[in-house]
Write a protein that binds this DNA or RNA. Structure first.
Lengths: 127, 127
DNA sequence: ATAGGTGCAAACAGTTTGCATGTAT
DNA sequence: ATACATGCAAACTGTTTGCACCTAT
């Protein structure tokens, strides 16, 4: 996949403009405003392709649908609001992770997810 | 749900005997050996009910299907083998998690998942 | 006897794929 | 011109639900 199509550009633009990782469906709805006829299959295919070319990163979440963010970021983790389901980027990391590793296992990655209420939802403005 | 049926007992037994959190499908296959006609819908319903009554806990994983473990355990996290997809319990936790919390957010839970190779898979015995 | 549990098949949600058509190169 | 991308619908996977039948109480 290398062609510069309006669909692909719209999807890329939506992700670039976002201030947090977006779900596939959010991207679909936002990109469809830019390219009216856009189909969901194209979104899935394009996200996969952007991921494979290395420009975006898929954030897998427990129990939730994947979110997508630009991959040119430093190592970080995420905070998930349990009310609005929005995901936010968290800076920094925790040290001494190796300490938890079971004996005989090799460590290839670690995932830290914080969950709670985001500022907006704490104020009862449920959105 | 309160009745003592062979299906429910088999499912409970499989989870109790396991040395690690099992997937719904693993539970289904193991319990079906104990109760031949067992249907997958019953497994889903029973797991949900055991969860609601508080005897088991659902481990949601990013990108993977849920695993189930007994809920009478201390706070812990998990290690996922990227080769055989088995999940292992990890003792202990990391301190200073609040430090990562974005300003204005409340913290209700945290999730730490380590990923890599388990001892068996490190030795090339791919299972 | 009867409320609740079970198995089956159909329904669902999210995601992927086959195919004919459209379009960037 | 043509190889690749798109939209649609069908297929797929994991999970849930409706319903007639079964069974623990």
């Amino acid at each position: 996949m290398k062609r510069k199509t309006s669909q692909r550009e719209a999807i890329r633009r939506v992700i670039i403009r976002a201030d947090r990782p977006l779900s596939t469906d959010e991207i679909f709805k936002m990109a469809r405003k830019l390219v009216p006829g856009l189909g969901i299959a194209t979104v899935y295919r394009t996200l996969k392709s952007l991921k494979e070319e290395g420009s975006i990163h898929e954030v897998d979440l427990p129990g939730q649908t994947s979110r997508w963010e630009l991959s040119d970021k430093d190592h970080h983790h995420h905070f998930l609001c349990r009310t609005c389901d929005k995901l936010f980027e968290i800076e920094g990391c925790l040290g001494d992770i190796d300490r938890l590793l079971p004996p005989g296992c090799s460590l290839e990655a670690h995932n830290i997810l914080l969950e709670g209420q985001c500022p907006d939802c704490l104020q009862g403005m449920d959105n």
